[in-house]
Amino acid sequence: MTLSDIAPSLGFSPQEMTAIVLSLKVAGTATVFSLPIAVFAAYALARWRFPGHTALNALIHLPLVMPPVVTGFALLLLLGRKTPLGAFLAEYFGIVFAFRWTGAALAAAVMSFPLMIRPIRLSFESIDERLAQASRSLGANPLWTFFLVTLPLAAPGVIVGAILGFAKALGEFGATITFVSNIPGETQTIPSAIYSYTQTPDGDADALRLAAVSAAIAIGALVVSEILQKRADATRAGK
């Protein structure tokens, strides 16, 4: 039994179901690909002092303060089909972002990145740096030290970051609709579908149902992240 089989019994139309599944796919892809980058960037910002430290930090947080439409527009200017970079990626790697679900995933990843990186960076910063020194003195090189000591200790923050990023990616709207438009079955995520329903007469009931789904996922994610945070605090307290 698949999700689309049980969809009618939940009162979802095939189009709504498509939007829900697509949203999960977009947000999942965005999270999977941006998490390793977020972990690396968070570690670099927390532990290294390098030229451009402040600039990198500002760049990462830019999507948080810029209007989402502007971020989407910037992506379009950078990665649209006819731009040099977009054409290059399409020709040599077969990767097309414009007006595809992959583009929706990219927009979601960019927009959720600042939210994802914050808890990860904070948990790296809260780890005693001398633990890494102890690990080095015991024979572990920097890479082993990172994977055996630093990353496991930062794991709660990484999980919280992933959950927050996933929830934010699910709700991304402005940059997505600007960058990849609102094509049912390809780029129409839950927020875009809600927007479409609100623009049609008698669409309010449908919009409300999807809004409820959206809220349920978001609240669920927050609850899970809260539980993990509590458990991590308990571990750190030595229980």
Binding site: R130, L131, Q133, A134, R136, L138, G139, N141, W144, T145
Partner: peptide, 16 residues
């Protein structure tokens, strides 16, 4: 990591 100097710290610094 290549020196093999065993370090013992004041607060032990065990991996929690």
């Amino acid at each position: 990591e290549k020196r093999r100097i065993g370090l013992v710290f004041q607060d032990a610094l065990l991996f929690p």
